[in-house]
Design a protein around this nucleic acid. Sequence first.
DNA 1: TATCAGTTATTGACATAGCAGATACTGTCG
DNA 2: CGACAGTATCTGCTATGTCAATAACTGATA
Lengths: 158, 158
Amino acid sequence: MAKDEDASRPAGLVFDAWRGVLFATSRTLQIAEPDLIAKAGFPLTWLDVLAQLYDAGDDGLRMQELEGRSLFTRSGLTRLVDRIETAGLVRREAVPGDRRGVRVVLTAEGRRRHDAAFIDHNILIERKFGRRLTEVQLRAVAEALAPFWHDDEAPTEG
Amino acid sequence: MAKDEDASRPAGLVFDAWRGVLFATSRTLQIAEPDLIAKAGFPLTWLDVLAQLYDAGDDGLRMQELEGRSLFTRSGLTRLVDRIETAGLVRREAVPGDRRGVRVVLTAEGRRRHDAAFIDHNILIERKFGRRLTEVQLRAVAEALAPFWHDDEAPTEG
DNA sequence: TATCAGTTATTGACATAGCAGATACTGTCG
DNA sequence: CGACAGTATCTGCTATGTCAATAACTGATA
């Protein structure tokens, strides 16, 4: 018994929605990742970092700030930035007035590669994700999941 | 569609919807993973496998089938199943009539641990994901993203 | 029955991420 | 100055995932 209603929230509904979110993410990323590597020559993790630095402007970001805006740990970021730096897409610079700190800045090459990758990536997301939903559905999903943008569980840097 | 409003172009919509899906997944998993490890003693990857085997019934699943139902590669699965087997939660058995094959089956202990973990995990998903959406939103998300469950991505551009 | 292409699963070499501890610097207090 | 607590970043060890190559087996063919 206990068909579904009665409970303010049918358990199966949450499960189905969660499953949808999970699979949409995984499936799309599984296509987007190799695509990005083929076209841009670097993985999504790099694009995350490059995009953050792009948005941050000319002064770049400190490792600490980068950590706050990404889904990596500090040590993971250190190595990630190492690789991107070795590839010449970012540069570590001294922070005036704090010799402990480092700020990470896009190089000209990094900016170029970011721009190209960003465009390619968005086209792919449109094709593999967006195209599977109607406009009404897109709007519903975007609206329903918007709360997760600003995460109240995680510390948000100001 | 052909709803041409300047304020909400489909491109921006796709981006917002994708961003929502991405963030909902990341934020929720970042909480669910440590929680599961604390309560069940194993990570989400194990639960994925255990849940698939649970659903599959007494005969379990072959590695191949497990691969099709999960988001791992074959070799990744081999090692994942190795670990779970070492922990005693699954068992590899011969497949009658095909000596290449292996079928993976839940042990009694595996079933117990699965049940407990599944309950805990669902409670957490309800709390951290489901509770942020209304029932209408849940329904909309579940419906919109259901196509991703069975992903038969057309090999050519679709 | 010998062979050969295809299938199933594992293994080896390698890449990347996390945790915990190390390293380098800052600012304060005596 | 010298000690100390706090901050910013990096490194060592380890865990886990992927790709490419391998081993074991199947079914068909000559």
